[in-house]
């Protein structure tokens, strides 16, 4: 695999590391299997791209994308909590609505962002360092900028989950009845957790648009499975349950997963095309779920349907 292709795989892996963190919050911390994210990733891309194309500062555009993602997540939580709609269905409802909303936000199915300012420009101070390594300038800058963003967010999230508020959120997912008996307002923690998760995924979408150079309404398909793949892969590599390790393994899992996909697509003898990505992902996640001993995230999908 060429250097450029490798950097490209790491770049998209870093974007999906944020998706993995979002999926980790809903599936693992809250035990709330949320499928909204297939709509939230393109939502984040749409909001950021539409605003940047409209001349808004990319930092503001990115923040707006995060807020939009949080709102979308709150809608899913609201449907589930206020109307007792099954979480899976609540997520699908919001996701379906988002497909239309995303088109409204963008106005057109695709917004190119070539030669527009992006948040990556704020990392231009890294350029002299990159020049010394002799690596290709632009792709390396994107990887380093994303790496810094992802590490900062991962550290903040790990810290957050160790606060009193974060611990209460973990208890909400682990044993809601006990949590309520301990004075924890579990509904509020579900709202905050699902909003936070979708905010992270929308941020991933916004960064995707700015690194890939476009936003497209179709980029969301398979987001949830890709996020799960990263979480599962990470958990398979690192087998401890500590929060810091769990978050780190989401990041590593996301990158390892993208590298594996890139290698598979790159191996000519396999005869795969880029459009086979979702098939490959589904097969890989399927196999991971069949393996014994791997914590099975789909179990939580069905656990709560029993009374």
């Amino acid at each position: 695999m060429s250097l450029i292709a490798t950097l490209g795989a790491i770049e998209i892996g870093l974007v999906f590391a944020l998706v993995a963190l979002g999926v980790y919050i809903t599936f693992r911390v809250l035990d709330f299997p949320d499928l909204t994210v297939d709509g939230t990733l393109p939502l984040g891309a749409a909001v950021a791209a539409a605003m940047i194309a409209g001349g808004v500062n990319p930092v503001f555009a990115t923040l707006a994308a995060i807020v939009a993602g949080c709102l979308a997540g709150s809608v899913t939580a609201w449907l589930n909590i206020r109307f007792a709609i099954l979480h899976l269905l609540a997520g699908i409802l919001t996701m379906t609505a988002l497909f239309s909303i995303n088109l409204r936000v963008m106005g057109v199915p695709n917004i190119p962002l070539m030669n527009r300012p992006t948040v990556i420009d704020f990392f231009a101070w890294l350029n002299p360092l990159i020049a010394m390594t002799g690596l290709p300038g632009r792709p390396t800058l994107r990887v380093l900028a994303l790496l810094i963003i992802v590490l900062v967010i991962g550290a903040l999230l790990a810290r957050f989950l160790k606060t009193e508020f974060g611990l209460a959120m973990r208890a909400t997912g682990a044993n809601p009845r006990m949590a309520r008996a301990q004075g924890i307002r579990t509904d509020m923690h579900v709202y905050v957790g699902v909003a936070l998760s979708n905010g992270l995924v929308a941020l991933a979408g916004a960064l995707f648009a700015q690194t890939a150079g476009f936003a497209d309404v179709s980029i969301g398909t398979g987001t949830i499975i890709a996020g799960l793949a990263a979480v599962i892969l990470g958990e398979t590599i690192f087998r401890t349950k500590s929060i810091v390790v769990a978050i780190f393994s989401c990041l590593i899992g996301a990158i390892a997963y993208r590298l594996a996909i890139a290698l598979a697509l790159n191996a000519g003898w396999l005869g795969l095309r880029a459009s086979d990505l979702n098939l490959v992902t589904a097969v890989l996640v399927g196999i991971a779920l069949m393996l014994p001993g791997v914590a099975n995230p789909l179990r939580s999908l069905f656990k709560r349907s029993a009374p």
């Binding site: 006990m178 301990q182 004075g183 349950k241």
Partner: peptide, 24 residues
């Protein structure tokens, strides 16, 4: 909570009835 540690369970109980903020 079986997924949490003994000390985390105790910390949850110790905060019963107070606001839970962003302190460790």
């Amino acid at each position: 909570c079986e997924r949490l540690t003994i000390e985390e369970n105790m910390a949850l109980a110790q905060a019963r009835g107070r606001a839970r903020g962003l302190g460790a």
